[in-house]
Design a protein around this nucleic acid. Structure first.
Lengths: 342, 342
DNA sequence: CGGGAAAATGGTAGCGCTACCATATCGTTG
DNA sequence: CAACGATATGGTAGCGCTACCATTTTCCCG
């Protein structure tokens, strides 16, 4: 006699328990859950009653195995604590909270290798969609994305040649706009201060450089960067370095708002007048920028919206109507504030 | 004749492909992957070669289904953008990055109902462990946690009666310590300003109240709170409200550092001298506190370490040696800075 | 060098679900 | 009212893996 393997799962009800209780076939329960319109109202009610009574919850693993498709969005970001990515992730979560999709979040730590490893891992789950930050994947990563067999959205940046879809904005233009603003308002010896020089930061720097060169103001000694992770204290340090290197500087375009805040604090401490002596521009426009004293000019970016849009596009692609426009540029906005009000 | 269902998975190699290529049984491949010491070195090498050649990656869904246990840590936090939780999550990710465990992250939005829903969902995956923020679960959530059949770690706070294990610190003591410090330094009309009054904030407030009452300084009009989500701009608003209500206040204990920063900026703007006219204490000690001008006194908490410790404890429990001490208090530290240097 | 235990390997039967196909039921129409 | 397509339901097999047990091989020791 065959001894059935004792319920390994600890006796949680299965779909056949529900089916038995409702007096229908297991398949009908499955259908009632996934395509209710194909099951008569009567049975649907009966089945729902059985589900409620038993406290049945479908096993996503069994479901994924049987259907060769997991209801999972894989999301890859380079940092979890950087507010910018946290906002994107929040947008993704909020957009998916009412859907059956779960989220598998990976932290690449700005490492291409780590990204490849995670992509490999995520791919093994046959996710419904993949959302990855950035457009500078390694060739290996790119191949993994192309062969993922699901919609892929690259976020944060736009660029040519998307793997599939893209939502973001031009960091180069952002950097240029910020720098142009400083020039326009009258600053001349404008420094660039940046930490964690990832590809997006590099492009902001390129935008800065383009603007400076165009105005005939470029000087490589105005640039201070570090590979260290960005933070407010680091912003302060870098600003002091920049000032030591170039005591006559009269403006700063910061890689991001953390750095800008560090610069502002150091100006306070050193009794440097902002905006009279030095003008400051940040990047991303965290909400604290507008209440800082003086309030800090920054490039507003739409991180939360990027997350939402990425999900919307992926969902559309899953549903079969792949969007016509595959690269969405959400733009940015220069917020002029007191820190450059000269 | 039986027509085998054509590879639904899109032809990715399976464990039997590897077994065939290596000339062994499928079980042996499985074993080589999970308990290598039980397979001879020879076969292990052969199998590894086959795996590399085919690019085989095990299917976690099949694995979870067969073993009734997913290699997943379920993590539930109330917010993704709040730096405090982001740090905890980062600690968790870092501790798990070299393990076979994946992470399923849920955002409860500070809602008990949402927490129940997510717990239900996560439970259906038979996770290897659950890490949840806070100790004030609803009765339903608590039951779900107790029946999860896996190690459970409640983080951020300590308290009596853990579901299983706990890592955190006493917010009540933290609030008291912060307030005591203000009193000790000479402030008298000390306000409490708090946003998003979740249970932890409530306990900090209770600590504040205890300290104030003990010193005979308590006055309910000194308290200003709001259910709104915390932010720097909101800190500024609340401080203005508090000041309008109680123009003579000379100190502020802020619910958290965002609020404290908002207060500091408003003081700058209103030309209120810090620390002479007003003293400020924050909570959590974000790294920007020490570079702010003036630097802000705060209660240092060990968020990253909480994440790491939670994982360590869960991992130990999974491995079978459940820690003797089930409630770990990581404490906190008062960082005295310029904002209260009177 | 035989016997027994330990180590190494394999076979079978599911885990809980869904794809695929078969069957039953119903209403419609010439 | 037979014939037919549409609708509703069910049965079977299998997704890729591992638990459980059986079998084979190796090693040790008296």
């Amino acid at each position: 006699m065959i001894k059935p393997r004792s319920r390994r799962g600890g006796g949680r009800p299965t779909i056949s328990d529900v089916a038995r209780k409702a007096g229908v076939g297991a398949i009908t329960v499955s259908r009632a859950l996934r395509e209710p319109e194909r099951v008569s109202l009567d049975l649907r009610r009966q089945i729902q009653a059985a589900i409620d009574e038993l406290g049945y919850v479908p096993d996503p693993n069994a479901r994924a195995l049987a259907s060769a498709r997991a209801e999972v969005f894989g999301v890859l970001v380079p940092s979890l604590t950087n507010n910018v990515f946290a906002e994107v992730v929040r947008g993704i979560y909020d957009s998916l909270s009412d859907s059956p999709f779960r989220i598998q979040l990976g932290n690449t730590h700005y490492s291409g290798l780590e990204e490849e490893r995670l992509l490999q891992l995520f791919g093994s789950q046959r996710p419904a969609a993949l959302i990855v930050a950035g457009i500078d994947q390694t060739p290996t990563s790119r191949k993994l994305l192309e062969n993922a067999g699901c919609p892929v959205v690259q976020v944060m940046e736009t660029g040519p040649d998307p793997v599939d879809m893209m939502v973001g904005f031009s960091h180069l233009d952002g950097g240029r706009t910020a720098t142009d603003h400083l020039i326009e308002v009258g600053y001349r010896r404008i420094a660039f201060i940046g930490a964690r020089m990832d590809p997006r930061s590099q492009r902001r720097l390129a935008g800065y450089r383009a603007a400076m060169e165009k105005a005939g103001l470029f000087d490589p000694r105005l640039i201070t960067t570090t590979p260290l992770l960005s933070s407010v204290p680091l912003g302060r340090e870098l600003f002091r370095d920049a000032l030591a290197k170039m005591p006559t500087l009269d403006g700063v375009f910061c890689n991001n708002d953390d750095i800008a805040l560090g610069v502002l604090f150091e100006c306070h401490r050193a009794a440097i007048d902002v905006p009279k002596t030095i003008g400051i521009v940040g990047f991303n426009d965290l909400d604290m920028m507008q209440v800082a004293y003086p309030s800090i000019t920054s490039i507003r970016t739409y991180r939360y919206e990027i997350g939402r849009r990425a999900v919307a596009m992926a969902l559309a692609a899953i549903a079969g109507d792949r969007p016509q426009v595959r690269v969405v540029d959400l733009g940015f906005e220069l917020k002029r504030r007191e820190s450059t009000a000269r």
